[in-house]
Design a protein around this nucleic acid. Structure first.
Lengths: 139, 139
DNA sequence: ACTTTTACTTTCAAATTGAAAGCAAAAATA
DNA sequence: TATTTTTGCTTTCAATTTGAAAGTAAAAGT
């Protein structure tokens, strides 16, 4: 097996799993937009290639950030859901959102996100609560 | 000029600048370990190649996350310092640190970081205050 | 029966990464 | 003053990764 981690630093170790061009965007769509299938995740503004999405979903599953299941009603579609580890990425996603919103407007036209300027811990709690409610329908 | 940004999403836009394998580790060393020169930043556990470090410093400078200066006492060494935009990455760095600490121990031996489990906003404030004090010696 | 959809895999060219070596100017040492 | 070392890179080039496009097999829809 190849060496997966560059060092014992927690920041570096986190980046070794989710510090690539696509993982956090996949997590964003699952966490905030409640996307659950390959097709849904493929349909983003950023146009991820299916080969990359396939590889990333496998890797995220191997590190237990997401789980892959099927529902009995549909034998074809896979359902991808965030695990606890995955849901715990909410603060990182929100901090990226806030930082991009404040610091990138000078270089790119940034979409306005409603409710982003409410109290930070309230935003984080809301996102997590909303995802957890959705999860109740899937077991 | 090539298109720099994949979409108008603030998360995606932030990732287009710092969402690579190395940028946040460079920021970590500057912000937390107060590293300021090419040499100091090169000497990390993760062993970044000089070609990569050079390219990343240029890019971070172009997006105004860091500044490059010299001090009159030394004509050779460049001094890299975080700008306001760069210092504002502190919450992201701390969240990565917390997430890695909690969620990666199962897959990698993670260094213990002292003081990480104090109040989150206190940790963030301390890191920023400490960096800003150091900055006072450089202008 | 057929057409479409889904969740991929395969292919292959282009872009990126990264190890190693090279280099010129400045600083340190003899 | 001459030589050696250090610094901050750049260059080179092979290996890896990315990503667009096409292909595929099974399930679902018509």
């Amino acid at each position: 097996m190849e060496k997966d981690f560059r060092s014992g630093c927690p920041i570096s170790s986190a980046l070794d799993v989710i510090g690539d061009k696509w993982s956090l965007l996949i997590i964003r769509d699952m966490l905030i937009k409640h996307k659950k299938t390959f097709k849904e995740i493929s349909d983003s503004d950023e146009r991820i290639a299916p080969s990359i999405l396939s590889a990333r979903l496998k890797l995220l599953e191997s590190y237990k950030l997401i789980s892959k299941t099927k529902i009995p009603e549909n034998k074809k579609e896979n359902i991808y859901l965030l695990t606890e580890k995955g849901i715990r990425l909410t603060p990182i996603i929100i901090e990226f959102s806030l930082w991009g919103d404040t610091n990138m407007r000078e270089f790119n036209e940034i979409d306005d996100i409603e409710g982003l300027n409410s109290d930070k811990s309230f935003v984080i709690q809301s996102v997590q609560d909303s995802y957890n409610s959705m999860l109740l329908n899937f077991r």
